[in-house]
Protein backbone atom coordinates (compact mmCIF):
# COMPACT_ATOMS: atom_id res chain seq x y z
CA UNK A 1 0.00 0.00 0.00
CA UNK A 2 2.79 2.36 0.95
CA UNK A 3 4.60 1.75 -2.32
CA UNK A 4 1.40 2.19 -4.24
CA UNK A 5 0.87 5.64 -2.73
CA UNK A 6 4.46 6.61 -3.45
CA UNK A 7 4.10 5.41 -7.03
CA UNK A 8 0.92 7.41 -7.55
CA UNK A 9 2.55 10.54 -6.16
CA UNK A 10 5.51 10.01 -8.46
CA UNK A 11 3.10 9.89 -11.40
CA UNK A 12 1.37 13.07 -10.29
CA UNK A 13 4.53 15.16 -10.10
CA UNK A 14 5.45 15.10 -13.82
CA UNK A 15 1.77 15.65 -14.62
CA UNK A 16 1.75 18.83 -12.55
CA UNK A 17 5.00 19.87 -14.17
CA UNK A 18 3.46 19.26 -17.59
CA UNK A 19 0.47 21.40 -16.64
CA UNK A 20 2.69 24.28 -15.60
CA UNK A 21 4.58 23.93 -18.89
CA UNK A 22 1.40 23.93 -20.98
CA UNK A 23 0.03 26.97 -19.16
CA UNK A 24 3.33 28.79 -19.57
CA UNK A 25 3.91 28.05 -23.25
CA UNK A 26 0.33 28.38 -24.49
CA UNK A 27 0.02 31.87 -23.03
CA UNK A 28 3.14 32.83 -24.92
CA UNK A 29 2.13 31.22 -28.21
CA UNK A 30 -1.61 31.86 -28.33
CA UNK A 31 -1.76 35.43 -27.08
CA UNK A 32 -0.01 37.76 -29.49
CA UNK A 33 2.16 40.53 -28.11
CA UNK A 34 4.85 41.23 -25.54
CA UNK A 35 4.31 38.92 -22.53
CA UNK A 36 5.31 41.73 -20.16
CA UNK A 37 2.53 43.93 -21.57
CA UNK A 38 0.12 41.00 -21.53
CA UNK A 39 0.84 40.25 -17.87
CA UNK A 40 1.02 43.86 -16.70
CA UNK A 41 -2.21 44.78 -18.46
CA UNK A 42 -3.00 46.89 -21.51
CA UNK A 43 -3.22 50.14 -19.54
CA UNK A 44 -0.05 49.63 -17.53
CA UNK A 45 2.59 52.35 -17.36
CA UNK A 46 5.99 51.84 -18.94
CA UNK A 47 7.61 51.55 -15.50
CA UNK A 48 5.13 48.88 -14.47
CA UNK A 49 5.71 46.88 -17.63
CA UNK A 50 9.47 47.05 -17.02
CA UNK A 51 8.96 46.03 -13.42
CA UNK A 52 6.95 42.98 -14.47
CA UNK A 53 9.52 42.20 -17.13
CA UNK A 54 12.32 42.20 -14.58
CA UNK A 55 10.40 40.40 -11.82
CA UNK A 56 9.51 37.50 -14.09
CA UNK A 57 12.69 37.52 -16.14
CA UNK A 58 10.79 38.22 -19.35
CA UNK A 59 13.86 39.84 -20.89
CA UNK A 60 15.74 36.54 -20.67
CA UNK A 61 15.64 33.59 -23.12
CA UNK A 62 12.52 31.43 -23.07
CA UNK A 63 14.00 28.40 -21.23
CA UNK A 64 15.26 30.68 -18.49
CA UNK A 65 11.88 32.40 -18.31
CA UNK A 66 10.30 29.01 -17.87
CA UNK A 67 12.71 28.10 -15.08
CA UNK A 68 11.89 31.36 -13.30
CA UNK A 69 8.19 30.72 -13.81
CA UNK A 70 8.41 27.21 -12.33
CA UNK A 71 10.47 28.55 -9.43
CA UNK A 72 7.86 31.22 -8.75
CA UNK A 73 5.01 28.72 -8.90
CA UNK A 74 6.86 26.46 -6.45
CA UNK A 75 7.27 29.43 -4.11
CA UNK A 76 3.57 30.11 -4.43
CA UNK A 77 4.12 33.31 -6.39
CA UNK A 78 1.67 33.55 -9.28
CA UNK A 79 2.39 37.18 -10.13
CA UNK A 80 0.21 40.24 -9.63
CA UNK A 81 -3.24 40.99 -10.93
CA UNK A 82 -3.08 43.63 -13.66
CA UNK A 83 -6.41 45.13 -12.63
CA UNK A 84 -5.95 45.45 -8.85
CA UNK A 85 -2.15 45.06 -8.48
CA UNK A 86 -2.80 42.55 -5.67
CA UNK A 87 -0.81 39.31 -5.69
CA UNK A 88 -2.80 36.67 -7.58
CA UNK A 89 -2.40 34.26 -4.67
CA UNK A 90 -4.08 36.76 -2.37
CA UNK A 91 -7.05 37.14 -4.70
CA UNK A 92 -7.38 33.35 -4.95
CA UNK A 93 -7.18 33.00 -1.17
CA UNK A 94 -10.02 35.50 -0.78
CA UNK A 95 -12.20 33.64 -3.26
CA UNK A 96 -11.32 30.13 -2.08
CA UNK A 97 -13.69 29.74 0.92
CA UNK A 98 -16.73 30.40 -1.28
CA UNK A 99 -15.74 27.88 -3.93
CA UNK A 100 -14.68 25.33 -1.32
CA UNK A 101 -17.99 25.63 0.53
CA UNK A 102 -19.97 25.34 -2.71
CA UNK A 103 -18.00 22.34 -3.94
CA UNK A 104 -18.22 20.55 -0.60
CA UNK A 105 -21.95 21.09 -0.14
CA UNK A 106 -22.54 20.05 -3.74
CA UNK A 107 -20.50 16.91 -3.31
CA UNK A 108 -22.43 15.94 -0.17
CA UNK A 109 -25.73 16.65 -1.89
CA UNK A 110 -24.99 14.81 -5.11
CA UNK A 111 -23.34 11.85 -3.42
CA UNK A 112 -26.13 11.24 -0.91
CA UNK A 113 -28.96 11.77 -3.39
CA UNK A 114 -27.21 9.76 -6.11
CA UNK A 115 -26.47 6.88 -3.76
CA UNK A 116 -29.99 6.77 -2.36
CA UNK A 117 -31.69 6.87 -5.76
CA UNK A 118 -29.24 4.34 -7.21
CA UNK A 119 -29.88 1.82 -4.45
CA UNK A 120 -33.66 2.01 -4.49
CA UNK A 121 -33.90 1.88 -8.28
CA UNK A 122 -31.61 -1.13 -8.43
CA UNK A 123 -33.41 -2.92 -5.63
CA UNK A 124 -36.84 -2.36 -7.10
CA UNK A 125 -35.64 -2.86 -10.63
CA UNK A 126 -38.22 -2.37 -13.40
CA UNK A 127 -40.92 -1.30 -10.94
CA UNK A 128 -42.93 1.88 -11.54
CA UNK A 129 -40.60 3.63 -9.09
CA UNK A 130 -37.56 2.59 -11.08
CA UNK A 131 -39.12 3.63 -14.37
CA UNK A 132 -40.24 7.00 -13.06
CA UNK A 133 -36.93 7.76 -11.42
CA UNK A 134 -35.06 6.68 -14.49
CA UNK A 135 -36.83 9.30 -16.59
CA UNK A 136 -36.33 11.89 -13.84
CA UNK A 137 -32.62 11.17 -13.59
CA UNK A 138 -32.08 11.25 -17.36
CA UNK A 139 -33.81 14.61 -17.37
CA UNK A 140 -31.74 15.76 -14.40
CA UNK A 141 -28.51 14.76 -16.12
CA UNK A 142 -29.50 16.69 -19.25
CA UNK A 143 -30.30 20.02 -17.60
CA UNK A 144 -27.60 22.63 -18.06
CA UNK A 145 -26.67 24.43 -14.84
CA UNK A 146 -27.13 27.80 -16.52
CA UNK A 147 -30.78 26.94 -17.09
CA UNK A 148 -31.54 25.07 -13.86
CA UNK A 149 -30.04 27.91 -11.80
CA UNK A 150 -32.20 30.73 -13.19
CA UNK A 151 -35.28 28.50 -13.09
CA UNK A 152 -34.72 27.58 -9.42
CA UNK A 153 -34.17 31.26 -8.75
CA UNK A 154 -37.40 32.14 -10.54
CA UNK A 155 -39.40 29.59 -8.57
CA UNK A 156 -37.91 29.72 -5.08
CA UNK A 157 -36.65 33.29 -4.88
CA UNK A 158 -38.92 35.36 -7.12
CA UNK A 159 -42.26 33.53 -7.13
CA UNK A 160 -42.26 31.79 -3.73
CA UNK A 161 -39.78 34.09 -1.97
CA UNK A 162 -38.43 31.25 0.19
CA UNK A 163 -34.75 31.61 -0.56
CA UNK A 164 -32.46 34.48 -1.55
CA UNK A 165 -31.76 34.91 -5.27
CA UNK A 166 -28.27 36.10 -4.47
CA UNK A 167 -25.96 33.32 -3.32
CA UNK A 168 -23.92 33.80 -0.15
CA UNK A 169 -21.69 31.91 2.26
CA UNK A 170 -24.58 30.84 4.49
CA UNK A 171 -26.79 27.78 4.68
CA UNK A 172 -29.74 29.54 3.02
CA UNK A 173 -27.53 31.25 0.49
CA UNK A 174 -25.93 27.99 -0.60
CA UNK A 175 -29.08 25.89 -1.08
CA UNK A 176 -29.98 27.04 -4.60
CA UNK A 177 -26.38 27.08 -5.91
CA UNK A 178 -25.83 23.59 -4.47
CA UNK A 179 -28.92 22.13 -6.12
CA UNK A 180 -28.02 23.88 -9.36
CA UNK A 181 -24.50 22.54 -9.44
CA UNK A 182 -25.17 19.10 -7.96
CA UNK A 183 -28.29 17.84 -9.69
CA UNK A 184 -26.57 16.69 -12.85
CA UNK A 185 -23.87 14.91 -10.85
CA UNK A 186 -26.47 13.31 -8.57
CA UNK A 187 -28.42 12.02 -11.56
CA UNK A 188 -25.33 10.59 -13.21
CA UNK A 189 -24.19 9.01 -9.99
CA UNK A 190 -27.57 7.39 -9.37
CA UNK A 191 -27.49 5.75 -12.79
CA UNK A 192 -24.00 4.51 -12.12
CA UNK A 193 -24.86 3.15 -8.67
CA UNK A 194 -27.92 1.46 -10.15
CA UNK A 195 -25.89 -0.28 -12.84
CA UNK A 196 -23.18 -1.31 -10.44
CA UNK A 197 -25.71 -2.56 -7.86
CA UNK A 198 -27.58 -4.59 -10.49
CA UNK A 199 -24.39 -6.30 -11.53
CA UNK A 200 -23.47 -7.13 -7.95
CA UNK A 201 -26.99 -8.19 -6.94
CA UNK A 202 -27.02 -10.84 -9.66
CA UNK A 203 -23.64 -12.26 -8.66
CA UNK A 204 -23.05 -15.63 -7.07
CA UNK A 205 -21.90 -14.43 -3.69
CA UNK A 206 -25.10 -12.46 -3.20
CA UNK A 207 -27.08 -15.61 -3.96
CA UNK A 208 -24.92 -17.40 -1.39
CA UNK A 209 -25.50 -14.69 1.17
CA UNK A 210 -29.25 -14.89 0.60
CA UNK A 211 -29.37 -18.68 0.64
CA UNK A 212 -27.57 -18.88 3.94
CA UNK A 213 -30.44 -16.90 5.35
CA UNK A 214 -28.94 -13.45 5.90
CA UNK A 215 -31.35 -10.61 6.53
CA UNK A 216 -32.15 -8.70 3.34
CA UNK A 217 -30.77 -5.49 4.79
CA UNK A 218 -27.42 -7.11 5.51
CA UNK A 219 -27.29 -8.55 2.01
CA UNK A 220 -28.00 -5.24 0.33
CA UNK A 221 -25.96 -2.93 2.52
CA UNK A 222 -23.03 -5.03 3.66
CA UNK A 223 -22.52 -7.41 0.79
CA UNK A 224 -23.89 -5.69 -2.27
CA UNK A 225 -23.39 -1.99 -1.60
CA UNK A 226 -19.84 -2.20 -0.32
CA UNK A 227 -18.79 -3.92 -3.53
CA UNK A 228 -20.97 -1.86 -5.83
CA UNK A 229 -19.39 1.30 -4.45
CA UNK A 230 -15.91 0.48 -5.68
CA UNK A 231 -16.30 1.82 -9.23
CA UNK A 232 -18.52 4.61 -7.94
CA UNK A 233 -15.79 6.14 -5.78
CA UNK A 234 -13.55 6.91 -8.74
CA UNK A 235 -16.36 8.48 -10.71
CA UNK A 236 -17.47 10.50 -7.71
CA UNK A 237 -13.96 11.84 -7.32
CA UNK A 238 -13.70 12.61 -11.01
CA UNK A 239 -16.96 14.49 -10.62
CA UNK A 240 -15.36 16.85 -8.14
CA UNK A 241 -13.19 18.02 -11.01
CA UNK A 242 -16.30 18.55 -13.08
CA UNK A 243 -17.86 20.40 -10.18
CA UNK A 244 -14.90 22.77 -10.06
CA UNK A 245 -15.59 23.62 -13.69
CA UNK A 246 -19.34 23.85 -13.20
CA UNK A 247 -18.77 26.07 -10.18
CA UNK A 248 -17.56 28.77 -12.55
CA UNK A 249 -20.98 28.97 -14.19
CA UNK A 250 -22.93 28.47 -10.96
CA UNK A 251 -20.99 31.20 -9.18
CA UNK A 252 -21.65 33.60 -12.02
CA UNK A 253 -25.40 32.80 -11.98
CA UNK A 254 -25.78 33.44 -8.27
CA UNK A 255 -23.18 36.17 -7.98
CA UNK A 256 -21.03 34.16 -5.58
CA UNK A 257 -17.56 35.73 -5.18
CA UNK A 258 -15.62 32.50 -5.69
CA UNK A 259 -12.74 31.44 -7.89
CA UNK A 260 -15.06 30.98 -10.87
CA UNK A 261 -16.29 34.55 -10.70
CA UNK A 262 -12.70 35.67 -10.20
CA UNK A 263 -11.57 33.94 -13.39
CA UNK A 264 -14.52 35.13 -15.48
CA UNK A 265 -13.97 38.71 -14.35
CA UNK A 266 -10.29 38.26 -15.13
CA UNK A 267 -11.14 37.10 -18.65
CA UNK A 268 -13.36 40.13 -19.18
CA UNK A 269 -10.62 42.44 -17.85
CA UNK A 270 -7.97 40.58 -19.87
CA UNK A 271 -6.14 40.08 -16.58
CA UNK A 272 -3.90 37.24 -17.79
CA UNK A 273 -1.93 36.86 -14.57
CA UNK A 274 -5.14 36.04 -12.73
CA UNK A 275 -6.45 33.76 -15.51
CA UNK A 276 -3.17 31.86 -15.50
CA UNK A 277 -3.12 31.68 -11.71
CA UNK A 278 -6.67 30.40 -11.34
CA UNK A 279 -6.17 27.77 -14.05
CA UNK A 280 -3.03 26.51 -12.35
CA UNK A 281 -4.70 26.52 -8.97
CA UNK A 282 -7.83 24.67 -10.07
CA UNK A 283 -5.78 22.10 -12.00
CA UNK A 284 -3.56 21.56 -8.99
CA UNK A 285 -6.59 20.91 -6.80
CA UNK A 286 -8.04 18.63 -9.46
CA UNK A 287 -4.85 16.56 -9.63
CA UNK A 288 -4.74 16.33 -5.87
CA UNK A 289 -8.35 15.17 -5.63
CA UNK A 290 -7.76 12.54 -8.30
CA UNK A 291 -4.69 11.36 -6.44
CA UNK A 292 -6.74 11.02 -3.26
CA UNK A 293 -9.40 9.13 -5.19
CA UNK A 294 -6.89 6.66 -6.59
CA UNK A 295 -5.50 6.05 -3.14
CA UNK A 296 -8.96 5.57 -1.69
CA UNK A 297 -9.76 3.24 -4.55
CA UNK A 298 -6.72 1.13 -3.76
CA UNK A 299 -7.64 1.20 -0.11
CA UNK A 300 -11.10 -0.27 -0.64
CA UNK A 301 -10.17 -2.60 -3.49
CA UNK A 302 -7.06 -4.65 -2.75
CA UNK A 303 -6.92 -5.90 -6.35
CA UNK A 304 -5.82 -2.46 -7.55
CA UNK A 305 -2.73 -2.02 -5.44
CA UNK A 306 -1.39 -5.46 -6.25
CA UNK A 307 -1.67 -5.21 -10.02
Amino acid sequence: MFFYIIRRILVAIPLMFGLVAIVFFLLRTLVPGDPAVILAGENATVELIEQVRRAQGLDKPLPEQFAIFVGNVLKGDLGRSSSTRQPVVERIALALPTTAALTLSTFLYSFSVGLFLGIITAYWRDSWLDNTLRVVTIFGASMPTFWLGPMLMLLFAIILGWLPAQGSLSLRGLILPTITLGTGAAAELSRLVRGSMLEVLSSDYIRTARSKGLAEKAVVIRHALSNALIPVVTIAAAQIGGLLGGAVITESIFGLPGIGTLSINAINDRDYAVIQGTVLFICGIYLFVNLLADITYAFIDPRIRIS
Partner: peptide, 10 residues
Protein backbone atom coordinates in the same frame (compact mmCIF):
# COMPACT_ATOMS: atom_id res chain seq x y z
CA UNK B 1 -5.45 16.56 -16.00
CA UNK B 2 -7.37 19.74 -16.79
CA UNK B 3 -10.97 19.77 -15.62
CA UNK B 4 -13.02 19.96 -18.85
CA UNK B 5 -14.84 23.24 -18.68
CA UNK B 6 -11.87 25.03 -17.09
CA UNK B 7 -9.70 23.90 -19.96
CA UNK B 8 -12.22 25.19 -22.49
CA UNK B 9 -12.69 28.49 -20.68
CA UNK B 10 -8.97 29.01 -20.43
Amino acid sequence: AFPGLIFAIW
